[in-house]
Amino acid sequence: MSLTTIAVEHLSKTFGHSPVLQDVGFEIRAGERVALVGPSGSGKSTLLRHLVGLTKANRHSDSRVTVMDRCIQRRGRLARGSRAQRCRTGYIFQQFNLVGRLSVMTNVLIGRLGCMPRWRALIGRFTPEEHEMALRSLKRVGLEELAHQRANTLSGGQMQRVAIARVLMQDADIILADEPIASLDPRSAREVMDTLQRINEEDGRTIVVSLHQVDYARDYCQRAIALKHGQVYFDGPIDQLTDIRLAYLYANAELDKPHESRFPASAPTALRVAG
């Protein structure tokens, strides 16, 4: 395996008439802990979704997303087999996205679905090894005693740790986390970030986490990629993301501000007024 594990080239994405990502490019090496920062609306979530192919880039751009030497999407078209490829990339959501009515254990086992034979998934038969692996994953996030509770009885912080266990169950080499702590209280947020850091240090799994609290990024990540108006504003070691640079990053970052309309004549009136 080469050192580069995620490569993004010339990635552009437009929703309607508003450009969300503009010619974004970067490389991430295996085992890195990268924070994705930027004001809300700067395209952090959209960027992460492109990395697993949940969102497709613009057709006309010369974009390319490569994860672990496998092409995920190119010129806005998903590569063949990119769905199967997803089981090598874990994804953590702001709202945890657990199946509330299933037990914690089943929610963790679900992580395995991507690389399980279909017939076994459809009759719901997980092997004893898989059960053991799920228990180990739960133990690593400190929730093994809640294995048989329903997922919707847990607190927010616990749910997010179940989501991390689900990613561990996938045995993914890369973990993408989209605002994993945005809806958590400070203590739960620390627990979640500690867990992610531990997983990175112990297993060497690459972690890309989008955060809007820069303090957390400074405490937990070595490198930062900052997005502003859909463009890479900063990419480098976290300690070079100084307060002055941060002030510029968040300056003039009104929500949903259209900075440049490509089709001014047909742009909705509301947008032009806001601009």
């Binding site: 697993v52 199967a84 997803r86 996205n97 199946v99 992580g111 991507g114 279909r118 998934a121 689900r166």
Partner: peptide
């Protein structure tokens, strides 16, 4: 709730598995 559906799709599960789980 569409969110678990998205989570399962992100694990690479096929359509039938997403429906079932």
């Amino acid at each position: 709730d569409q969110r678990p559906v998205e989570a399962l799709e992100a694990t690479g599960a096929s359509h039938a598995k997403v429906v079932l789980y």
